[in-house]
Amino acid sequence: MDRLLEERLFKVLMLSSLTMVVGSLFAVVAVVVLNGAPALTPSMLTQTPKGGYYLGKEGGILNAIIGSIYLAFGSVLLALLISIPAALSLQRDYIKKTKVAYSIRLSLDVLWGTPSIVYGAFGFTVMLYLGMRASLLGGIIVLTLLQIPIMIRAIDETVKLVPAELKETSYALGTTRFETTFKIVIIQVLPGIATAVLLAFGRSIGDAASILFTAGYTDNIPGSLLDPAASLPLAIFFQLGTPFPEVQQRAYASALVLLVIVLVVSVASRALGQRFSKHILR
């Protein structure tokens, strides 16, 4: 084949592929907005399901919105408590053998690929073993497991970028390892933490498979950690599964709510990442 013709042919192919990929994003957003917006009424956002809601009667998905927010915030907090120390300890200062740090990183990267349904099944098994019922706490714990690899690796990537000179300067002033880590290094890592938090938040608020058995579902707003909690993804799933068009409409509206939350978080993570970086030395 003529090489210039080939060049042109592939350029067209590449451009059309890219158009299709980007187009599919707009298609997803457009379809969800167009179908969801008409069904999205104020009462959907401010009321919990009333009797007969799933048959098309009065009510809203406030239970699911609040439940999702509880689940996401709870799990992000818990995951942070584990991830920040874990990511900081992957530094040379703590783990002397690079091989150990290397294998922990590798195992986290591999864990990242674990499907959430497997976490869900695992979490439910453990909960059965401990005699726990499906609850907000169960959902939070499973979502935490889901987030740990994402968070640690995201924070770790920024910890790696902290210049060794900075740490040495700090040590030279007579600080302990602990002070250097939690007063010097952590400031450099803040943008990484912010990005990690939002990344994990977005992932956990949208995940359904892991909380299907562990968080349960209820029409009430959970009052304690041991109550079952509703969630937006499952609300969408259940409403879509009913045979009534009015209820399915509400599923579209709920999907729109979820999509907006996720997109806002995603855009915010970008903006915040840049904002926090003003203290960073490079």
Binding site: S24, N35, G206, I236, F237, L259, V262
Partner: peptide, 24 residues
């Protein structure tokens, strides 16, 4: 401009893809 859009695509929850799939 395009790479953030691709990242955005990664952030959309599976259920939303499911709804979209059912609709289109």
């Amino acid at each position: 401009r395009v790479l953030p859009l691709v990242d955005l695509l990664a952030g959309i929850p599976p259920v939303v893809y499911g709804v979209w799939g059912v609709l289109t």
